[in-house]
């Protein structure tokens, strides 16, 4: 049986469709990954850092209305959390497809600067500390929520 011109065109069109599908799927591979995998060290490090901030706020609140609450007594805290943030960030940045977590850590670092500026001006009431503590808790929780989501049901 001889193929008509129309049959040939149809066969060629089907072959092209199949080729497009095959090339696309082959390019995608079996499973795609758009975000980095879960990292236990990041999880533990961020959790440990969050604990340090909790201890900081507890300590500052306890010392409010006394000279012990002044900024100069907490320079070590700011140095330490900056160093820890930097360590966590370097690890996060070394992992591919982890840009969102890196950006989140940068935002926490900016907030450490802002907190430090506030501290230099002086904390005057427990009510003033409340939204600050909430903001840092929220940030750490956000980072950890995303990290746990990276487990993808593992």
């Amino acid at each position: 049986m001889r193929h008509s011109g129309r049959d040939t065109a149809r066969v060629l069109r089907r072959a092209l469709q199949l080729t497009v599908v095959a090339v696309t799927l082959a390019g995608l591979g079996c499973q795609i990954k758009l975000v980095a995998d879960y990292d236990e060290i990041t999880d533990r490090s961020v959790t440990a850092l969050q604990r340090e901030f909790e201890l900081f706020f507890i300590d500052v609140e306890r010392n409010l209305y006394t000279p012990d609450a002044v900024y100069d007594n907490y320079i070590g805290f700011y140095d330490e959390v900056r160093a820890e943030l930097s360590v966590i960030r370097v690890r996060a940045a070394a992992r591919p497809k982890n840009e969102i977590t890196v950006e989140q850590l940068d935002l926490v670092a900016q907030n450490v600067d802002n907190l430090e500026e506030l501290h230099k001006l002086g904390f005057e009431s427990p009510e003033e500390l409340e939204p600050l503590r909430a903001a840092f808790q929220q940030s750490f929780q956000a980072i950890l929520t995303l990290e746990l989501a990276k487990k993808r049901g593992q």
Binding site: L107, N111, N114, P131, S139, T145
Partner: peptide
């Protein structure tokens, strides 16, 4: 203003998690 900046950055962190999820 410093307080608000801290809240804005915390919100941005949350939005990034939403984006990631």
């Amino acid at each position: 203003r410093l307080h608000l900046e801290i809240q804005k950055n915390a919100s941005r962190t949350v939005l990034l998690t939403i984006e990631g999820m």
